[in-house]
Design a protein around this nucleic acid. Sequence first.
DNA 1: AATAGTTGATAGTCACAATTATCAATTATC
DNA 2: GATAATTGATAATTGTGACTATCAACTATT
Lengths: 142, 142
Amino acid sequence: MNKNEPIYTISNAAKVLGVSVYTLRMYEREGLIIPFRKESNQRLYSENDIERLQCIQKTINEEKINIEGIRRILALLPCWNVINCSAEDRENCNYYYSFDKPCWMYNHKNNVCQVKECRECEVYNSFDNCGSIKKKLRDLLP
Amino acid sequence: MNKNEPIYTISNAAKVLGVSVYTLRMYEREGLIIPFRKESNQRLYSENDIERLQCIQKTINEEKINIEGIRRILALLPCWNVINCSAEDRENCNYYYSFDKPCWMYNHKNNVCQVKECRECEVYNSFDNCGSIKKKLRDLLP
DNA sequence: AATAGTTGATAGTCACAATTATCAATTATC
DNA sequence: GATAATTGATAATTGTGACTATCAACTATT
């Protein structure tokens, strides 16, 4: 079974996670998760999405980092290095010089991200477990 | 006048910043600031310390990141790269594989940091304004 | 075509993190 | 040597952010 296959409706995902539907929509609005959307705009969550959400829950409830803090941490991900942006793309990218929200919350016109699905991007998926962002930095830095 | 000279007592610093003495001690306990200590153990704050504290206040009160969030962001600073640790030092350093608190909250025995004052270290001082940590990453990454 | 579930938006609730207050012991200053 | 300020530690207070509830309009399923 493919862990990336979007199979949970929002109410099923909420049930599995023990939170309300409204909370899942809030996480999305806050930029922490990007669920799959059917043609009809209906959200669908995969097994990996559930894991990501469990990680978010743990970060908020146990590690006591608030949502704004999580967003700022995600805003430190060096996507330009992960996907190897050109110098030109870096200069034209709103995200490169910002530090308030993750790259996938910016709209990417005129650069390499235009043709990619953020949901499937390696940068977005760097947050696949709670300690993975620093690991990313360890791997990328000389 | 030297902006690094420790001249403010804790009560004077609290007055300048408009917070209580107890709050300044909390920021220290939480790892956000390292004031100078006289031989008698009394805290003294420099002009740069005041600026750092103003930045912390702004981050908490305006940008709404909580203290745990700030600490986790500081815990992403790649000190090993800034001060160019040896591979051996990296492996032996508790901070290198952690992500819960900044390097200066770990005790550095058996590595290059042993002989340095964290208060004067470039890593600690990367947080000299509120957007400076991502800038550090931009500068360090290839 | 009827029921159940979804959408975005706004308003309300409540636990707890950020801050302040108080304590006795120690240190600075005049 | 007397007064004021500091130290670390613990207790009390309070503002607000995480979460829930409700709404009318729309979509899915049988």
